[in-house]
Design a binder for these strands. Sequence first.
RNA 1: GCCUCCUUAGCUCAGUCGGUUAGAGCGACGGACUGUUAAUCCGCAGGUCCCAGGUUCAAGUCCUGGAGGGGGCGCCA
Length: 477
Amino acid sequence: MSKRTKILDLLQTAPGSDYTVMGWVRTFRNNQFIALNDGSCLANLQAVVDFENFDPSLLKRITTGAALKITGTLIPSQGKGQSVELKANAIEILGDCDVEVYPLQPKRHSLEFLREIAHLRFRTNTFSAVFRIRHALSYAIHKFFNDRGFVNIHSPIVTGSDAEGAGEMFQVTTLDLNNPPKNEDGSINFKKDFFGKATNLTVSGQLEAELAALALSEVYTFGPTFRAENSNTTRHLAEFWMIEPEVAFNDLDDNMDLAEDMLKYLIQYVMDHCEEDLSFLEQRLAEEEKQKPQQERSEMSLKEKLAFCLEHPFERLTYTEAIDILKNSTPNKKGKFQYPIEKWGADLQSEHERYLVEKHFKKPVILTNYPKEIKAFYMRLDDDGTTVRAMDVLFPGIGEIIGGSQREERYDVLLGRMKEMHIPAEEMSWFLDTRKFGTVPHAGFGLGFERLVLFVTGMTNIRDVIPFPRFPGNAEF
RNA sequence: GCCUCCUUAGCUCAGUCGGUUAGAGCGACGGACUGUUAAUCCGCAGGUCCCAGGUUCAAGUCCUGGAGGGGGCGCCA
């Protein structure tokens, strides 16, 4: 292959020289204008064909979806849509594309349809924009933590611990499911399994991150996470990516500061580096909003929404304060909530979270100090003995984007909480060891990566921000 | 897991009270045009009305079951 110039670079190059580009045809207009895209940016390169100088049988093969190599001279464009264009001197068909059977047409497609052809949807404007932004966010996460001296920890994906309590787990085994080795009592003998014990896919890297934090001080994980929950929503996946920072010597306030700084940094990064893709998605969203009834339309455009998040501090309040607001809220008094707020202690439903974020405060909200009964065993017990130092960061349209806490660092209190919640302490001795040997206050949280991508791109279904979504009943591709 | 809606041409959808030969836009194809921006204009083809039963003189339309998909709720990130 001769030297290739990326379309992203070519569009910023002064005209005059010859270049070779390779990419896929979006449209071929007027037997003259090829809109070529190579994914390096949203914009297409316009290649101009003098059709009298090319074999008609070659021109017939320039169809939507075909892969081309075009060599030509970069010239100022006579048309209005672009400043430069490539005057084609040579065209080579790298791969034909039979439009009779190629599912992508030069027209608008529904997200539902594209989801069924996820192997081809990268070739659309919307999905190429989403996945470029997804990449930018991934890179920015590493940059944010690296710049602050955090150490990236690769926590295990196969775990022997089944006591994390973060959700249903997928089993990992090499045993013959049709004829597994049995113990005398008829149960399966996992000693004969690959790892010599029952193993699962991880539901969280947090416990391992805590071990590292209690030596390296500032760490984070960024890896795949698996939950075998039968969740059927636009916000849940069975396989998703999670970022879990864990910081020694941090309390809950430090933890909230870190979460807010991080989210603002990431949003700012995308606004600074993904202007073209963001503008496209903003326009796409605006067109989608037009289809909705006036009442349901959002007041802000995508970029306004992102800027708004940057400009205002997140609202921080305790669970108890939130209950008071909800109890006295108009929808609660008028019986509009499906689950009315009656007494302190109840878990908040998503309708309540949405009211706080979207109606009452109209900005991101951090809820803290939840009743201990509705939170995990490892969260630090408050002095009153009834609440724990938990924090949930709630975003408009997404709900919970971050869940975290200051961790219980006191050995006796942690052990007591584990017993209360029926966590088998014997199997968790390695975790308890950290509280036995030089324990310190520490805190951390989990950020759902796809939920962040959802928010930043303005997409509405989490299955559209991961290349090949896994959810109940579906593991295609 | 629960609730709800949908499934008609390649895609998006219309199809009245159950009644003749099931329609439109876009896309594809053929032609015209040749500085176009999802080009335009003219023409043409394209249907297992999701599947299996049932009711009826007659079912895309009604009923039962199944499959696939969307949305909401719960679980949570």
